[in-house]
Amino acid sequence: MKMHKIIKERRLALNFTQEQVAKYLGVTTPAVNKWEKGISYPDISLLPALARLLDTDLNTLLSFQDDLTDKEVAIFLNQVSETIDKEGFTAGYDMAIAKLKEYPTCDQLVCGVAMLLDGALILKASKDDRLEEYRTEIMSLYKRAARSDNIQIKEQALSHLISNAIQRKNYTEAQALLDIISDPSPVDKKQIQAKMYIEQGELSKVAKTVEEKLLLLNTEVHETLLSLMDIAIKDKRYDDAGYIANVDEQATKIFDLWEYNRYLAHFQLYLALKDRTKLLKTFVPMIKSLTKKWDVNKSLLYQHIQTKEVDEDFGKKLQKNILKSISGDEEASFLKDSPELEDILKDVK
């Protein structure tokens, strides 16, 4: 909002007349009237007193605060896009730059305009005489947005600056910018890193990066499916829970996850259903799988991932903890005196 609108809005909110404001500040009523119409502006020496009178601060009075909502930014960007389609890139560009001069501190607007103009540049202005001017300004906007306090806006802008550096084959600059991005991040940091390695021909590095991402995503899918199944169980949608458990089992097999994971969903389902027969049928291979070493590099999906040496006794310790937990769990009390469970307990003692 511009200064003249702020002055008028605050004056009315405080029930002041223009005459009262003029009297308090030692100016004429017509002067205040001109301020509110945007014809002229208060003398700089009057600004602190005017801000105090209107019960606001200088930043607000001078329009230093961006007051565009996300919705307003989205609506404006649509207007710019329509202008580019109907009147050409230059018309949309000039419209966007004019808006940025009005709201220079609105980071959402800065980043949004940069991305919109960047996307439209090749399609709409590839032969324009002002092409270099456009490119320079767009990069400048990305750099402004990359200084935002909003992490999502900042890292979105950084990702575009990185892509530009990669296109220019300036991999040192690209890596330096990538290192600024947080982890985890609103942007796909690993994908950007992979793209850079591919451009540099470092295929073993890119394979490791992509494989790590794949393993992380598959693990997240597994955990998400377990949560969905738990929701279905609590909602007594047992058929849905069974379907989700089947999907999880297939997914863990297809994506070569730890064998132990493939049994977890059905184990939780049968435990909730108190289905002793099916539970034990699942539990026995599940508990035995803990002592089988999971060599992640044997999978073609994860052959470049660097792994740490796991304590050989880790599986046995985990076995004992799980069995101890099951033995003391009231929900699993229906398994008490089970010969199959007793045999497992003897094996791990």
Results as ranks from 00 to 15, higher is better:
2 K>I: 08
3 M>G: 06
6 I>L: 12
8 K>A: 15
8 K>P: 09
10 R>L: 11
19 E>A: 13
22 A>Q: 03
25 L>P: 07
26 G>T: 00
28 T>R: 04
35 W>E: 05
37 K>G: 15
38 G>C: 07
42 P>A: 07
44 I>Q: 14
45 S>T: 10
47 L>T: 06
48 P>E: 12
50 L>R: 01
51 A>N: 10
52 R>A: 10
53 L>G: 08
56 T>K: 11
57 D>L: 00
62 L>M: 14
63 S>H: 13
64 F>W: 11
66 D>Q: 11
67 D>Y: 04
68 L>M: 09
70 D>Q: 12
72 E>A: 06
72 E>M: 04
75 I>L: 12
76 F>T: 01
79 Q>L: 08
84 I>D: 02
87 E>L: 10
91 A>R: 09
95 M>S: 04
96 A>P: 03
96 A>Q: 04
99 K>P: 00
101 K>G: 13
106 C>S: 15
106 C>I: 11
113 V>M: 07
116 L>W: 05
117 L>K: 02
121 L>C: 04
125 A>I: 00
126 S>P: 00
133 E>Q: 13
133 E>M: 08
139 M>Q: 09
139 M>H: 05
143 K>H: 08
145 A>C: 11
146 A>R: 07
146 A>H: 05
147 R>Y: 02
148 S>I: 00
149 D>I: 03
150 N>L: 00
151 I>T: 15
154 K>N: 12
165 A>W: 05
165 A>T: 01
167 Q>P: 10
170 N>Q: 00
171 Y>S: 08
175 Q>W: 09
186 P>D: 01
188 D>G: 06
188 D>N: 11
192 I>T: 04
196 M>K: 11
199 E>Y: 00
202 E>A: 11
202 E>N: 12
203 L>H: 09
203 L>A: 08
207 A>K: 14
207 A>Y: 07
210 V>K: 12
210 V>A: 10
211 E>H: 14
217 L>V: 07
218 N>D: 10
218 N>I: 06
226 L>Q: 09
230 D>I: 07
232 A>W: 00
233 I>P: 03
233 I>H: 01
234 K>P: 03
235 D>H: 14
236 K>M: 11
238 Y>S: 01
243 Y>T: 05
248 D>L: 10
249 E>C: 15
255 F>E: 03
255 F>K: 03
262 R>D: 01
265 A>G: 04
266 H>W: 13
268 Q>H: 13
270 Y>H: 15
270 Y>K: 12
272 A>G: 04
277 T>E: 15
278 K>T: 06
279 L>M: 10
284 V>P: 09
289 S>K: 08
295 D>G: 12
298 K>V: 05
300 L>V: 09
307 T>I: 13
321 N>F: 06
324 K>H: 07
326 I>G: 03
328 G>E: 00
331 E>D: 11
332 A>N: 00
334 F>Y: 15
337 D>V: 01
